[in-house]
Design a protein around this nucleic acid. Structure first.
Length: 291
DNA sequence: AGTTGTCAAGCTAGT
DNA sequence: ACTAGCTTGACAACT
């Protein structure tokens, strides 16, 4: 089991999500920013390896405006060597990587332009992982998308649009249960249709479920992962106390986490801690596991 | 140096 | 009709 955290390390004095305003776009600015982001990503990975945190989500801003129409620069070719070396480091140290395009990526949108832009953005995420020469255990996770007043039809649209993606992209994708629209059960139904593996999010499941206890839910999610996809990925968070449903906690509650680990006993999965204080909680969790 | 409004993109629920 | 929330964080223009 690997433990990780998403995108940001607050113990280091750098970010791998540096960006700039569209209005200030220039090729020079892009190159400079990507260099800085890659440099910081290396520092974060060093920190993680040193602390045995072998799961990490790379932020979507690694290459700002990568899929935007303003960007005609062949960044993939320009940074080929840097990405390859980063990938070598990742593979050498047995680090698991995921990426999570943001909320604007909606593969099942009723608007064609949104679907087109979503596919471009997904392709960018996949390209990063491809340039790093990571196998298909490195995942790009998305949600099923919008409901538009007809969930069944919207799930069908997801499956249809998914089926039209090229196989290289399909191999990278995973879907995650969300907290308002698509439950684990819905994801399972889309999985049945498409074969796409399911990332299990415990907090979303807490907000939206069909009565399955965690122990059962995790088994069902786990069954959606093939050998080639690697271990089941789990997004873990605690509910922030006295806040509305779905708000992430500031720091990990180790008692709750212990209980969770008990409930998923026997399932070999990698856990991403989506908690506000990022690596601090991850360090607490890893020391709990290693003790 | 610190503060604050704004940022490429979408959708849902709550007001 | 409008806003918060979603990984909200980082930029940039202002005090």
């Amino acid at each position: 089991m690997k433990i990780g955290y998403p995108c940001i390390n607050n113990s280091l004095d750098c970010t791998s999500n540096r960006t700039f305003r569209l209005i200030n776009y220039s090729q020079e600015r892009l190159i400079e920013t990507v260099y800085q982001n890659l440099e910081c990503l290396q520092k974060i990975l060093d920190f993680n390896v040193k602390n045995k945190l072998l799961f990490f989500r790379i932020g979507s801003q690694l290459v700002p405006f990568a899929s935007h129409e303003i960007n005609s620069f062949d960044w993939a070719d320009y940074f080929k060597k840097e990405f390859k070396e980063m990938g070598d480091y990742i593979r050498k140290n047995d680090v698991r990587i995921s990426m999570h395009p943001d909320q604007f990526v909606v593969l099942n949108s009723i608007r064609d332009d949104v679907v087109d832009k979503s596919i471009k953005e997904i392709e960018y995420h996949c390209q990063v992982l491809d340039l790093m020469e990571l196998d298909q255990t490195a995942k790009v996770q998305i949600h099923i998308g919008g409901v538009y007043g007809d969930k069944k039809e919207s799930m069908k649209r997801f499956a249809k649009n998914y089926s039209r993606l090229n196989s290289k992209i399909k191999k990278r994708l995973a879907i995650e249960n969300d907290h308002v629209s698509y439950s684990l059960k819905d994801c399972l139904s889309v999985h049945k249709e498409t074969g796409v593996p399911i990332i299990f999010d415990n907090l979303h499941h807490q907000c939206l479920n069909n009565g399955e206890p965690i122990s059962e839910a995790i088994k069902e999610a786990n069954n959606s992962w093939s050998e080639k996809d690697g271990n089941l990925m789990v997004d873990y968070s605690d509910q922030k106390k006295n806040q509305k449903k779905g708000v992430h906690a500031d720091t990990i509650n180790l008692d709750s986490f212990k209980t969770f680990l008990k409930e998923i006993e026997g399932i070999d999965c990698d856990i991403m801690l989506e908690i506000k204080d990022k690596e601090k909680s991850a360090l607490k969790a890893i020391s709990l596991i290693n003790q």
